[in-house]
């Protein structure tokens, strides 16, 4: 009996089991230390659609992604996206942007620059494919612009699922309406939304007011600017002087009596 217990094979097995048991106990004991920290860390690492990524990356890279190289791999894919963009390969560009943002949805950088490529560059390529600005009728150009803008909006909407409070994303949507679609009403709506988010740039609110003016909603713009001027901090970036100028312009246009005019 004793010789069986002394057998090196059994001894070795016992040692392995002892180590495993010790590690198991250690795991249980450290859980209370680790779990709350892990909750926080995990919350900062949004889930990925693994199947979508695996299809385009292959399993080897997926392990790298899961193992902690997610951000850097997304960076490199973004650089590849840039070369695709330089080659004006719009089908591939679409797929790459989707891949990069699925892989790492955290940086706003990917979303914003991706949506710009889709909304601003791709329509140019498509118009050129169809014969150039001179050959393609205005109406067709507008259809193409709209199609691309809608794709960009879809991308930004997905981004907003991850970053509902990010002012820059709202701003981006407003800018596409404004610059590409010349749609002042919708642009105004998104600039307003942007201006209400934390950390929004000061110009978002100023542009909103300007867009109201362009739509002829001078009274609305006047009321908004007065409110804005009261709330803004005295930062040089807030450019309160410019706002005062706009207010007095509007007062002239609205023929506000002198005694009712805004006094800061």
């Amino acid at each position: 009996m004793q010789s069986i217990l002394q057998h090196p094979l059994l001894q070795r097995t016992l040692r392995v089991l002892t180590v495993l048991l010790a590690l198991l106990l250690l795991g249980l004991l450290t859980r209370p230390v680790e779990a709350p920290a892990w909750q926080v860390v995990k919350a900062g690492q949004p889930e990925m659609n693994l199947e979508a990524i695996e299809g385009s990356l292959g399993q080897g890279l997926v392990i790298g992604v899961l193992g902690g190289f997610r951000a850097i791999l997304a960076d490199f894919l973004w650089i590849r996206t840039n070369t695709v963009w330089e080659r004006k390969d719009r089908a591939k560009l679409d797929a790459m942007i989707r891949l990069v943002t699925t892989l790492d949805p955290r940086p706003e950088f990917f979303w914003i620059n991706g949506s710009r490529m889709i909304a601003y560059d791709v329509p140019n390529w498509r118009i050129r494919e169809e014969g150039g600005y001179d050959a393609v009728p205005e109406a067709r150009q507008q259809v193409l612009d709209l199609e691309q803008a809608e794709q960009a909006f879809k991308l930004i909407d997905t981004a907003l699922d991850f970053h509902p409070e990010n002012a820059r994303l709202y701003l981006e949507k407003g800018q596409i309406y404004l610059n590409r679609l010349k749609d002042d009403a919708n642009a105004a709506e998104w600039f307003l939304k942007a201006s209400q988010k934390p950390g929004a740039p000061f110009f978002a609110a100023r542009i909103y007011a300007e867009l109201l003016r362009r739509q002829g909603k001078n009274a609305e713009a006047y009321a908004y600017l007065k409110e804005l001027h009261r709330e803004l901090p005295d930062s040089p970036f807030a450019q309160k002087g410019v706002i005062l100028e706009r207010i007095s312009e509007l007062e002239d246009e609205l023929k506000i009596p002198v005694w009712e005019r805004y006094r800061p």
């Binding site: 495993l20 590690l23 198991l24 795991g27 249980l28 450290t30 859980r31 680790e34 920290a37 892990w38 860390v41 900062g44 690492q45 902690g68 997610r70 951000a71 790492d104 955290r106």
Partner: peptide, 18 residues
């Protein structure tokens, strides 16, 4: 469950993106 307990969680330290 056992696997998760036996090995320490290295992903915990992967906070560079945050």
């Amino acid at each position: 469950f056992g696997l998760g307990l036996i090995f320490p969680n290295f992903q915990l330290f992967n906070v560079g993106d945050q």
